[in-house]
Design a protein around this nucleic acid. Structure first.
Length: 217
DNA sequence: ACATGATCATGC
DNA sequence: GCATGATCATGT
């Protein structure tokens, strides 16, 4: 698939997938469908990347680099509401001095997002899960203000070495959660006394309640 | 039922 | 190890 040349082309292409099943789309691209997603958690996102002509690979750039759009699949429960949080980016646990919201990876990633809802209720076999209507989205100024406040709170907490004082409860829309191979995974961080320590790597995630608001709008 | 904490795969 | 893509699974 050639990369989209404009937002409209991307949106048209994504809209053409609406109502189709993952199995149909996978077959078009000669991609095998896993029996479940337990060991293929990124499979749906990667299928959409292929189907829509995403270009980024694992480089730290938007999925549709030339038009600056990020692609996110959003799993829907049996009521067709988002059922999972959405990973945004890893959280910096060191060298936080001087970081600003305006140049943050979180803001950059959320600047323009194509949300593609996917049926994800466990009882539906992966191959016959249907793709929903895409939403091309940017945060409203109100959204941005809340995301910024969340982000600044998280970064301050990281810089002060207070990461262990709360769990994932902090943040209205944006939360911090583990993003690791397993619980023994470690990355460099700053302790409460300012020393370097090894901690579980974390990532920024959008709360399910926020993506529900986006998808429902 | 839901959110949090834990985990899986791939590429460089 | 960190970037990409996320969902699983357990506790409450």
């Amino acid at each position: 698939m050639d990369p989209p040349r404009s937002e409209n082309e991307l949106l048209d292409c994504a809209a053409a997938l609406a109502g189709r099943t993952l199995g149909e789309v996978a077959r078009c691209h000669a991609i095998a469908v896993p029996r479940n997603l337990k060991r293929a958690k990124g499979w749906v996102g990667e299928l959409l990347e292929t189907a829509l002509g995403a270009t980024a690979g694992s480089r730290p750039v938007p999925d549709f680099e030339s038009i600056g759009v990020e692609l996110k699949s959003v799993p829907l429960n049996s009521q067709h509401l988002p059922q999972e949080s959405t990973f945004v980016s890893s959280a910096p646990l060191i060298n936080t001095v001087g970081l600003q919201w305006s140049t943050s990876t979180v803001k950059a990633k959320l600047n323009r997002v194509l949300w593609v809802p996917i049926e994800a209720a466990h009882e539906i076999p992966v191959a016959i899960r249907r793709i929903g209507r895409p939403i091309l989205w940017s945060p409203s100024s109100e959204d941005s203000a809340i995301l910024q406040a969340d982000w600044e709170e998280h970064i301050e907490r990281i810089a002060l070495g207070n990461l262990d004082e709360h769990g994932a409860q902090l943040g209205t829309y944006l939360q911090i959660r583990p993003k690791a191979i397993n619980k023994r995974d470690r990355t460099l961080a700053v302790s409460h006394t300012g020393e370097q320590i090894a901690l579980l790597p974390r990532g920024f995630y959008l709360r399910t309640s926020f993506t529900r608001k986006i998808i429902s709008a």
